[in-house]
Design a protein around this nucleic acid. Sequence first.
DNA 1: GCATTAATATAGCAATAGATAATATACCAA
DNA 2: TTGGTATATTATCTATTGCTATATTAATGC
Lengths: 98, 98
Amino acid sequence: MNINKMQGQAGEVSGLLQACSHASRLLLLCQLSQEELNVGELETKLGLHQPSLSQHLGILRRQGLIEGRRSGQQIYYKLTDDRAKALVGSLYTIFCEQ
Amino acid sequence: MNINKMQGQAGEVSGLLQACSHASRLLLLCQLSQEELNVGELETKLGLHQPSLSQHLGILRRQGLIEGRRSGQQIYYKLTDDRAKALVGSLYTIFCEQ
DNA sequence: GCATTAATATAGCAATAGATAATATACCAA
DNA sequence: TTGGTATATTATCTATTGCTATATTAATGC
């Protein structure tokens, strides 16, 4: 492992980790890595109040991890960032398998 | 991927991510996954002020990720948590290889 | 158009994090 | 014991985060 490489990426990586470092956002990313869901569905699945959920979605969106697609009144979100997908997968392997 | 499993772990995982979500702490973990280093060495390697460094080390220590061993006047730290090791390895793979 | 529902944005507040400066503790050597 | 070096802790300040409540925008059905 070459520390210099990590030094160049540290800002970007820590930004991603920061975005994932809240339990609700982590679960959001897990859900959205599996299926595309609209905000109302996420609200009931995760049991969050709408403004909080919207803020968390905003953080993930501004970080470039998720994308929304409007369909009528609903906006459907999914996880689009490959690195975030890989991270979620690794976290699942480390903490939920074995 | 079973979301329920992640739900049970979300608090613990987000705690770990929180600890890694600062560029200096991320680099600390990378360094300490490679070699045991004392505080003065870390200070010059990472270019941090001693009190900040000590605070970051304290956060990682209280989170159970690193352990210190006193040898004379110096305290040598290394990464001891297996999951954190696995995470750092995954992050390196995702962001620094490919 | 108007009313309704879905989603987003904003404001206010409490709690937390991070930087710096100053102080304290632990160890060692003379 | 005295002084020096290494590390930790504390205090203070500022900035950021997250929650709740409220307002605003967007789309639909009448």
